[in-house]
Measured scan of single mutants.
Amino acid sequence: TTVHLNGVTYTFPNPEEARKFVEKLAKTLNLKVEVHNGTYHIE
Rank of each mutant, 00 (worst) to 15 (best):
F21H: 01
V35P: 01
G7A: 05
V3Y: 01
I42V: 13
A26N: 06
L25W: 07
A18K: 01
Y10T: 04
T39E: 15
P13D: 09
K27T: 05
Y10L: 14
L25T: 03
E43W: 15
Y10F: 13
T1C: 15
G7H: 11
N30L: 06
E16K: 07
N30G: 12
V33P: 01
V8I: 11
F21Q: 01
L29C: 15
E16P: 03
V35R: 02
H4W: 12
K32F: 07
V3T: 01
L31A: 11
R19A: 07
R19I: 11
G7S: 07
E16M: 09
P13A: 11
E23C: 15
L25E: 01
T1P: 06
N30A: 05
F12C: 14
A18T: 05
P13I: 10
V33H: 01
H36L: 12
L5W: 15
T9F: 11
V35M: 11
K32N: 06
F21A: 02
H36G: 02
V35L: 12
L25C: 14
T39C: 15
N6C: 15
H4S: 07
K32I: 11
G7Y: 08
E34Y: 14
Y10M: 13
T9Y: 12
E34D: 05
L5F: 15
T11D: 08
T1L: 06
E17Q: 11
T9G: 05
K27F: 09
P13V: 09
E16S: 08
Y40R: 03
F12P: 00
P13G: 08
N37I: 02
Y40N: 03
T11K: 12
P15Y: 07
K24F: 14
T2P: 07
L5D: 03
H4K: 11
G7L: 05
V8P: 01
V33S: 01
Y40L: 13
K24N: 12
G38A: 02
E23G: 04
P13T: 09
T39M: 13
V8G: 05
V3M: 03
T2W: 11
N30K: 07
G7T: 05
H4T: 06
A18Q: 01
T2Y: 13
Y40F: 09
G38C: 14
V33C: 14
N14F: 07
R19Q: 07
N6T: 04
V33R: 00
N37P: 01
I42M: 06
P13E: 10
N6Q: 07
L5K: 01
I42C: 13
Y40S: 04
T28W: 13
Y40A: 04
V22T: 02
T11R: 12
I42A: 04
K20I: 09
E23H: 06
T9E: 11
N6Y: 12
H41R: 03
H36Y: 09
T1G: 12
T9S: 11
V3N: 00
L25F: 03
L5T: 03
G7Q: 06
F21I: 02
T28L: 14
Y40V: 12
V3F: 03
T28E: 13
P15E: 09
E16R: 07
V22H: 01
L29Y: 10
T11W: 10
E34T: 14
V33E: 01
E43P: 02
T39H: 15
H41K: 03
L29H: 15
E17R: 10
F12V: 01
I42R: 01
L25P: 00
K27G: 08
N6S: 08
E23R: 05
P15I: 07
F21R: 00
G38K: 02
N30H: 11
K20M: 10
P13W: 10
T1K: 10
N14E: 06
Y40K: 03
F21N: 00
K32W: 06
T28Y: 14
R19P: 00
A18V: 07
T39L: 05
K27V: 05
V8Y: 12
R19L: 12
K32L: 07
N6E: 09
G7D: 10
K27E: 12
F12G: 00
K32Y: 07
Y10V: 12
T2Q: 13
L31P: 02
I42F: 10
T1E: 04
Y10H: 10
V35S: 03
E17F: 09
N14V: 05
K24Y: 14
F12D: 00
Y10I: 14
E17L: 13
N37S: 03
A18G: 03
V3Q: 00
I42H: 02
F12S: 00
T28V: 13
A26Q: 11
T9K: 13
L31C: 15
T11E: 11
E43H: 12
Y10A: 04
L31N: 02
R19M: 10
R19N: 05
A26E: 08
N14A: 06
K32D: 03
L5M: 12
K24A: 12
H4G: 02
L31S: 04
L25M: 05
V22P: 00
H4Y: 13
V33F: 14
V35E: 05
Y40P: 04
V3E: 00
T11S: 10
N37A: 03
A26M: 13
R19E: 06
E23I: 08
T28H: 14
P15C: 14
L31I: 14
F12Q: 00
F12Y: 02
N6A: 10
A26G: 05
F12M: 01
N37H: 04
V3D: 00
K24S: 08
Y10R: 05
E34L: 10
H41A: 02
E43R: 07
F12T: 00
H41V: 14
K27A: 10
N14H: 07
L5V: 12
E17H: 08
L5I: 10
E16C: 15
V22D: 00
T39S: 14
Y10E: 02
A26T: 09
T2C: 15
K27I: 06
N30R: 06
E23L: 09
V33W: 13
R19W: 13
Y40H: 04
N37V: 01
L29A: 09
T2D: 12
T39Y: 08
Y40D: 04
V35K: 04
E43Y: 15
K20D: 08
E16L: 08
G7R: 06
V35G: 01
T11I: 13
E17A: 13
L5Y: 15
F12R: 00
A18M: 04
L5N: 01
V8H: 11
I42Q: 02
V3P: 00
A18I: 04
V3L: 04
K20V: 08
E34A: 07
N37C: 15
V33T: 01
E23S: 05
E17C: 15
N37F: 04
T9A: 11
K20E: 09
K24T: 11
H41L: 10
T2A: 12
K27W: 05
H36W: 06
V3A: 03
K20G: 07
V33L: 05
K27L: 12
N37Y: 03
N37K: 03
F21S: 00
N6K: 07
L31F: 06
E43V: 15
V22N: 00
G7E: 08
N6P: 06
P13H: 07
P13Q: 10
E43Q: 12
E17P: 01
V35D: 03
K20Y: 08
Y40E: 03
T2L: 13
H4V: 14
T2E: 13
E16D: 12
T11L: 12
E34M: 11
H4N: 09
V35C: 15
E34P: 00
T28D: 13
K27Q: 09
E17G: 08
F21W: 13
K20L: 10
A26W: 04
E34H: 14
H4M: 10
L25G: 00
L5H: 07
K20N: 10
T2G: 08
L29R: 08
A18N: 00
E23M: 10
T2K: 14
E23F: 09
N37D: 13
T1H: 07
G38V: 02
T28M: 13
H41I: 14
I42Y: 03
P15V: 07
G7V: 03
P13L: 10
E16W: 06
A26D: 07
F21L: 03
Y10S: 02
L5Q: 01
L25Y: 03
N30Q: 10
V35H: 03
P13C: 15
V3C: 13
N37G: 06
T28K: 13
A26S: 11
T9I: 14
N30S: 04
L31E: 02
V8C: 15
L31R: 02
E43K: 10
P15L: 08
A26V: 11
L29N: 07
E43G: 09
N14S: 11
L5C: 14
E34C: 15
T9C: 15
A26R: 07
T11F: 11
I42S: 03
T28Q: 12
F12I: 01
L29I: 08
H36Q: 06
N30F: 06
N37L: 04
N30W: 04
Y10W: 11
T11A: 09
T9R: 13
N6F: 15
V22W: 02
E17W: 12
N6R: 08
V3W: 01
T1R: 12
A18W: 03
Y40C: 14
E43C: 15
F21M: 03
Y40Q: 04
T2H: 15
T39Q: 15
H41D: 05
A18E: 00
E23Y: 11
H41E: 08
Y10Q: 03
H36V: 14
